[in-house]
Design a protein around this nucleic acid. Structure first.
Lengths: 196, 196
DNA sequence: CCTACCGATCGGTAGG
DNA sequence: CCTACCGATCGGTAGG
């Protein structure tokens, strides 16, 4: 009986985190009230505190679950010992898949992280920076090898990261989104550009 | 004397709008209080209402001043009767310049527009859509002509728009930002891609 | 431009 | 899981 209780509480916690993500994306973190979240779950606002410790902690959980996913992929990626251009392509493909499969939580992590409490803000920014640095390093390697054009590596990184965010708009359009076509289209455009 | 008064009030209104933009970008619209804005100006919160009608109206003014700038450029652009690829390039260059010279207000328009009141929300979305459609139409023309590769025009548009947002990150890095180099780098990467 | 103040709502706690 | 309630803060108004 106690076992069932634990399972139920875990699914309810998951439901709260999911609804919080949806609302944080829809209205923004600050404009979302605990009452808003509670209503989606079907309970009163104070009852949320049986599952979570605070609104700030809810945001922390969402942002760090995303950051940790990317961190883990980076570690896996390094163990594959691929060429810089292949490793970059693989990072991009992982990023695109994350965008398609977890787009609400990614949206929140990308746009609402600035509302993280002081304690977690720096740690979060550092994790993001590590990902960005890794991508820039791969581009620099590609430039040195001569595979990539002699662009500004930092700007190329930012353009790529920004372009990946374009998938947010794509999701919004509710296109049936054939993941493979999407992936290849983006990779092609970023690697080869617009012109023939 | 009354003339001086008018001028003073106009500059104070401009100052309020400027500080509001900075704070809306920094903390987000919802997390910014009228007291926050008033403090930056050096007056009490209720005194703001001698210059503005509401917080919502402040956001409206910011968002629509940006949207109107792009709308005017689109009209000018059409009168130049250039080829689609040249017109696209010119639109991109204008967009980049706007990003560099008005990046705080553009940031707010890009990220906080969802907090616009019902009445203005649809009108704003329509203006954005018109800009997006114009860009997609130019890309479609370029594809038909054979100047551009046979990409998905809609996705290409979204990738370009997202990439232009990358300049937000760039600004944040406080790089001295030689505008010409930046412009050419972005145009090159979007048109020709990463690879040699 | 200020002080004084309004009703509404916020995140969160107490106690059961 | 609820009701009752806390102090704080919100956007905005009245009146001078």
């Amino acid at each position: 009986m106690s076992k069932i209780k634990v399972i139920r509480n875990e699914t309810k916690l998951a439901a709260i985190e999911q609804q919080a993500s949806i609302l944080f994306k829809q209205k923004g973190y600050s404009a979302t009230s605990m009452k808003d979240i509670a209503e989606q779950i079907g309970i009163e606002a104070p009852s949320l505190y049986n599952h979570i410790s605070s609104k700030a902690d809810l945001l922390k959980t969402i942002c760090f679950s995303v950051a940790d996913s990317f961190e883990e992929e980076m570690k896996r990626s390094e163990q594959r010992n691929a060429t810089p251009e292949v490793e970059l392509e693989q990072m991009l493909r992982f990023h695109i898949q994350m965008m398609l499969n977890n787009f609400t939580t990614l949206w929140v992590a990308n746009h609402e992280w600035k509302h993280l409490s002081q304690i977690y803000l720096k740690k979060y920014i550092d994790k993001r920076k590590a990902y960005e640095n890794k991508m820039r390093w791969l581009i620099e390697q590609g430039i040195t090898k001569g595979t990539f054009a002699a662009l500004d590596a930092k700007m190329a990184t930012l353009i790529i990261l920004a372009a990946l965010r374009g998938l947010e708009f794509w999701q919004k359009e509710k296109q049936p989104a054939n993941a493979d076509v999407l992936e290849n289209n983006i990779i092609q455009q970023l690697f080869n550009g617009l012109t023939q």
